Each structure stands twice: as C-alpha cells, then as structure tokens.
Computed example of a mutant assay.
Amino acid sequence: MTTPMIEVRAVTKRFGSIDALAGVDLSADAGTVLGLLGPNGAGKTTLVRILATLLRPDSGLATIAGYDVVRHAQRLRSMIGLAGQYAAVDEMLTGRENLELVGLLYHVGKAERRRRAQEVLERFSLTEAADRQVKTYSGGMRRRLDLGASLVGHPSVLILDEPTTGLDPRTRNELWTLIEDLVTDGTTVVLTTQYLEEAERLAHRIVVIDRGRVVAAGTADE
C-alpha cells in the first residue's frame, strides 16, 4: 500500500475559546489535487498554515512525504510552495526581481535562479512585463506572479489558499489550466476554495470542512 504524500490525523488547533480545528483527518496521494471546501472561518486556512509549517497543531499528526510538519519543519520548507489568498509580491521590484529573490531565499545559485525566474516568466505569460515594477501589474498578473514565485523552488507539494478569489473568469480559467499542467508533471496540490466548480474541475478528492471538522469527503461525484 502506497504512503500518502500528505497525511493528517486527528489534528486540533484552538485559539482562545474557539476550536479552529477539532480533530481533522485527511490524506492526499502524490500527483493529485486535494480540494478543501468550506465557508469562511471553517478552519481551512488554519490547516493550510499547519501544513506549510507556519503554525504548530495543538495535537495530532501531520506529515508531508513522511516528514512531520513540526519535527522536520526546516527540511520540509524546501519541498513546499505556498500561495496565499493575497499576492505576496513586492510592488517596488520587477517581476523578474521578485522571482530571483525567492530563488535566493531557497539558496539557489545565481545562474540557476535566473534560469528558473525566466522559466516561470515564460510559463505564466509574464515575459513582456518581466522588467516592469509589479505596482504596474493588473490583479491577474500579480496573482500569476505570486503563483509562479511559489514554484521557483521546484516544490513537490504546492499549497494554494483560495488562489482564484477575486479574479475574472478568463484569468481563473488560465490558472486552472496551469494547475492541471503542474499536476500532470507530478506536483501534489492542496487547494482551498469556496468555488464548487473549481473543486469539481481540479480536485481528485474533496474534503468539506465546517467548524473545524471534516463533514464530508470523497470525489466530486460522491
């Protein structure tokens, strides 16, 4: 039996009197998309932050590629890409400079990070705007740059927290196609979304979270 790329068992997290996560169990195989659905405040972002090693669970176990997100956090950070709900790019830098900076933070050599930056710019149709300051970019371009930045480290697991919120239908469709291409190349994706059609198109398995608990899990048809 194959070990899941991502496994979460009985994970809890409490903030004051609020149970953000109240014993969550889920798993995802390598090269698949796990869709996390649920209303605002359901606990999706808390779970994402735990998987991204940015938050420690109060109890339970979460592993990626067999590594514990608490005990092996440093090791896992080089394997994970994260794009949050809002584009985390520096507006005063150019698109290319943003990408090369991410490569520097991953300790990628100068020539290689330039190559990877160019690769991302081409993949996300940003070559023409590569040397313009990001403050001149449209919202869709910033979103594509942010997603591209999460790929500079060549992550095995990509965590996307509502990546298409606020985007127009055309840009959303472009991002969906990019995500599908990444999965075809073997990337495992965790996708939180409030759009059912997004989960239906992209996710191999869907987990619905409400009030910190898993209330449904299965394929889109199920």
Rank of each mutant, 00 (worst) to 15 (best):
V134H: 03
L99R: 06
V70D: 03
S156Y: 03
S125Y: 11
R9Y: 07
I64L: 14
L54W: 14
G148F: 03
L101W: 13
V208L: 06
G84C: 05
V152A: 04
L145C: 00
H72G: 01
P169Y: 07
D221R: 08
V33G: 09
L105W: 07
V157R: 06
R170F: 10
R211Q: 12
G43Q: 01
R96H: 02
A10G: 11
D25H: 04
V102N: 00
A220G: 13
R9G: 05
R114L: 14
R49N: 15
L104Q: 13
L61I: 15
G81C: 12
E122N: 10
T177C: 00
R116Q: 11
V215E: 02
A199W: 02
S17C: 05
T219N: 03
T63F: 00
A216H: 15
D58T: 14
V48K: 06
E198P: 01
A111E: 06
L26H: 03
K44Q: 07
A87I: 15
G140F: 04
E91V: 01
R71Q: 13
E100K: 10
A83K: 11
L160K: 12
L182Y: 07
P57L: 12
D210T: 05
D131H: 12
G35R: 01
V70W: 10
R75Y: 12
L126Y: 12
G148V: 00
A42S: 10
A62P: 13
G95D: 11
M5V: 08
L191T: 01
E128H: 09
R71A: 13
L175E: 01
E119Q: 15
T46Q: 09
D161W: 08
M141S: 05
V69T: 15
A129Q: 10
V207G: 00
V33I: 11
R75P: 01
G60Y: 13
T192G: 04
I206G: 01
G41W: 08
D68T: 02
E198Q: 07
R14M: 09
G84A: 09
G60I: 14
R201Q: 09
A62K: 15
Q194E: 08
G16K: 15
H204A: 11
E112L: 13
T53W: 11
G218A: 03
A199V: 02
L101R: 10
E112Y: 03
S156P: 15
A42V: 15
E128Y: 07
G103Y: 04
K135V: 05
G218S: 06
L93K: 07
L145F: 06
A216V: 05
Q85F: 07
M92I: 06
G148Q: 11
F124W: 14
E7G: 14
E97Q: 07
S150L: 08
E100Y: 05
K44W: 10
E174P: 06
D161Y: 05
V102A: 01
R211E: 05
G66V: 15
V208S: 00
R113H: 04
L54P: 11
D161H: 09
I50R: 12
A216K: 15
